[in-house]
């Protein structure tokens, strides 16, 4: 018996609940040994309107069960993405969303407008973990008004699905989730990396040249499950769980916590077939438990 793994997220019908997380899958053309059949969707590496060089090395540092990264959103910019990648995506059998970034509210809107209607671009994931240059470098994602303003700016410029990627570095993720829901988001992804730091005890300075970095991997999983769960309790739009998923069991924790789908990030670095393994593992689990579809999986989502 084959299990129905399809999910619906804000206007998109996905053949499975497992997606590639932004920044861990390039533009989908790089991953070796890729098993496309298992991909529900892909979120591209984050881009800005203009090309960016990124930060100086060292950019990554391994930590217990995790890694810190400060890549600095190195990327080719919108025009190169439209020219080099979108045409390839247009032929793929799963949707590709572009992770969009900006230094001002209008940056986000402009980028969405530029990509709207480009064949191959199926929607947007708005990364609000960016410093708001106009407002003294405060992160958009830390402030419900700024988060809503960015969401609205994108919403106004496109009819494609708009997902908002939430940062975990907030006092109450439910407040931010509700703010972006009211501003027109079709879904939220929870969560981005946690800001962390690690010191080189021989060189007396941080191991990353940037100083701080984003922590990902199994180290953040219980934190991410909790935050995704809080977001799911706060909003009616779908929540996409992300953080430390290495195996199907980890993904199931997010799904039971109230998420509609999941993203796999760091695991792909370790195992290029991680997405397929997680997808197949969820299907096998559902079959073993006697569920005919993912929709039948019981969720732990008490209403307050």
């Amino acid at each position: 018996m084959s299990v129905d793994m399809t999910v619906r997220i804000g206007g998109l019908q996905l053949r499975g609940p497992v997606m590639a997380a932004s920044g861990t899958f390039g533009y989908g053309t790089e991953v070796p040994l890729l098993e496309r059949r298992a991909l529900g969707a892909m979120v591209s590496k984050g881009i800005f309107l203009k090309p960016r060089h990124g930060t100086a090395p060292p950019r990554i540092a391994e930590t217990p069960s995790g890694m810190l990264n400060a890549i600095g959103l190195q990327g080719p910019g919108a025009e190169a993405l439209i020219r080099d990648y979108a045409p390839q995506w247009a032929g793929w059998e799963f949707p590709v969303l572009v992770n969009i970034n900006g230094e001002s509210v209008s940056d986000y809107g402009e980028l969405a407008a530029r990509l709207d209607g480009v064949p191959g671009v199926a929607g947007f994931e708005v990364n609000i973990s960016c410093p708001n240059v106009e407002q003294g470098g405060m992160y958009f994602g830390n402030d419900p008004r700024a988060a809503a303003a960015v969401t609205e700016a994108v919403r106004r410029r496109t009819r494609l699905p708009v997902w908002v990627k939430l940062t975990p570095m907030v006092a109450d993720i439910g407040v931010i989730a509700r703010a972006v829901e009211s501003a027109g988001a079709d879904a939220v992804s929870a969560v981005n990396t946690f800001v962390g730091m690690s010191m080189d005890i021989n060189a007396y300075h941080p191991r990353l040249s940037f100083g701080t970095g984003g922590l990902s991997g199994p180290a953040i999983r219980p934190l991410a499950v909790h935050l995704a769960h809080q977001a799911a309790r706060a909003v009616d739009i779908p929540v996409i769980g992300v953080g430390g998923i290495m195996r199907a069991e980890d993904a199931l924790e997010f799904l039971i916590a109230g998420c509609t789908a999941v993203q796999v990030g760091t695991a792909t670095f370790v195992n290029p077939k991680a997405i397929a393994d997680v997808h197949d593992g969820i299907a096998a689990y559902l079959a073993t438990k006697g569920f005919a579809s993912l929709a039948e999986l019981p969720r732990y989502l008490p209403r307050d």
Binding site: F25, H53, G54, P58, R59, Q74, T268
Partner: peptide, 23 residues
């Protein structure tokens, strides 16, 4: 030699600075 996250071109962790600029 650089630190490497993935070894396959997806993490952008293994940046090598070039004389002509960029990585």
């Amino acid at each position: 030699e650089t630190y490497m996250g993935c070894g396959t071109g997806v993490c952008l962790g293994c940046a090598v600075p070039l004389k002509r600029g960029g990585y």
